[in-house]
């Protein structure tokens, strides 16, 4: 069970490089890489807002809930 960041997909769609995006939203390329590789433990609203603004998308386009646990019976 995890939240998957689909930043690489959106970046490919918008044809924008990591360095360029990092510069535009004001974070380091290292931090963008953490986010892109699903290593991040949390994301600030300000970062999410800047990403959505630059990529012209909704938070739901960037974040996806993956439920790999077996469903509870009931």
């Amino acid at each position: 069970m995890e939240i998957q960041v689909n930043l690489d997909v959106m970046m490919a769609r918008r044809k924008i490089s990591g360095g360029e995006l990092a510069e535009k939203i004001g974070i380091t390329p290292a931090n963008l890489s953490i986010l892109k590789n699903n290593k991040a433990k949390a994301i600030r609203f300000s970062t999410l807002m800047a990403l959505c603004h630059e990529l012209g998308c909704q938070p739901g386009d960037l974040l996806e809930f993956i439920d790999d646990e077996p469903e509870k019976g009931g």
Binding site: I27, I34, K39, A40, K41, A42, I43, R44
Partner: peptide
């Protein structure tokens, strides 16, 4: 600290 380090 680990959580803070991985907060983007």
């Amino acid at each position: 600290k680990s959580e803070l380090d991985f907060t983007v």
